[in-house]
């Protein structure tokens, strides 16, 4: 029986969805270790402890809460030092982070501090004897590698959305802890947080993504993409590199090999040719729809449903039809 550690990510005083995914993955690992405990690590500004009970819902037995005014913004040095110290002291079999922007920043530092193996961007995992065996997309998503990590604790970052959080309610015990390193003394400090577009869903969290390419012809026409996203209600807007290069959309919207990798339930590609670097970021979407005026466009090779035609003409009609379908329920 061995315990597992989960980093529960929060931002601005709220848990992120990936926090539940890491706790839930740690639960699965603890169960595979003969029913060990899940210890979730939650850090933030004073008051963050109020989020602890939410983690119990997904199987956290203990929530280690670190509250400090200097942790209001992410503070990688202090967080990595504190998490590493807890992991070292806790004798865990594994430590799970998300392969989110924050998790990808923290987990390698923790692995280096502890001198242990780390697998990144894991889409599936299992304990096999004394090894942790994981699957990891490599080569721009064109190859799936199975990696074997020996030694304990094994660290992994979990691909966001690859494994849905499963409820496993427990009454989580809260344990307070102090930062192992003074957040104010960090060598790198956050000077400013720039919020995204208000209440908009992030492309990593959205069940539906409507994405636009150069076929939209102008930044103005992205309004049509936003309208369709709004009609779905639960959608985010993505873009190709051609579009972010032209400054029609911010770089953070870019999907693909050098952008974000997403796997929504529905991906609508509007005026996108389907270059392999773009496909690398969206090929794992459950259903793909493509609208392109060129019936030979490579995007149709990965699309489940395609419409050939002018995206500027088609989008308003599709938006109206989606609205109507959603109103009918």
């Amino acid at each position: 029986m061995a315990n597992t550690f989960a980093f529960a990510e929060s931002r601005g005083g709220a848990l992120r969805r990936v926090a539940f995914e890491t706790v839930s993955a740690a639960r699965a690992l603890a169960d595979a270790c003969g029913g060990g405990e899940v210890h979730a690590f939650l850090a933030g500004a004073p008051g963050v402890s109020s989020l602890a009970s939410e983690l119990g819902k997904y199987g956290a037995d203990v929530v280690i809460v670190v509250e400090h005014p200097g942790l209001a913004n992410a503070n990688a040095e202090s967080l990595a030092a504190t998490a590493a110290e807890r992991i070292r002291a806790g004798g865990y079999r594994a430590a799970v982070f998300s392969a989110s922007a924050q998790g990808r920043d923290l987990a390698p530092r923790v692995a280096a501090k502890l001198g242990v193996g780390m697998a990144a961007d894991v889409i599936a995992f299992e304990l096999s004897g004394d090894a942790l065996v994981v699957k990891h997309p490599a080569y721009a998503g064109k190859v799936i590698a199975t990696l074997k990590l020996t030694g304990s604790p094994a660290i992994m970052t979990l691909h966001p959305g690859a494994r849905a959080a499963v409820e496993a309610p427990t009454e989580a015990r809260v344990e307070s802890a102090q930062p192992a390193a003074d957040p104010g003394a960090s060598k790198v400090l956050v000077k400013e947080m720039i919020a995204g577009g208000g209440a908009k869903l992030d492309i990593g969290d959205a069940p539906v993504i409507v994405s636009g390419g150069r076929g939209l012809k102008s930044a103005d026409n992205f309004r049509l993409v936003e309208d369709l996203a709004a009609a779905f209600g639960n959608a985010a807007v993505g873009a190709t590199r051609a579009v972010t290069d032209d400054g029609w959309r911010p770089h953070s919207d870019q999907i693909g090999q050098t952008g974000r990798q997403v796997s929504p339930d529905l991906y609508v590609a509007c005026g996108i040719s389907g270059a392999i670097q773009h496909i690398a970021g969206m090929r794992n979407s459950r259903t793909i729809v493509a609208i392109n005026k060129d019936k030979e466009a490579p995007i149709f090779k990965v699309a489940d449903y395609g419409i050939v035609g002018d995206v500027v003409e088609i989008l308003p009609v599709l938006t109206a039809a989606v609205k109507e379908a959603r109103e009918k329920g």
């Binding site: 790198v188 956050v190 947080m193 919020a195 770089h251």
Partner: peptide, 9 residues
């Protein structure tokens, strides 16, 4: 760049 936000360090 973070998900749906950015930070300046």
């Amino acid at each position: 760049e973070l998900e749906g936000a950015a930070e300046v360090v």
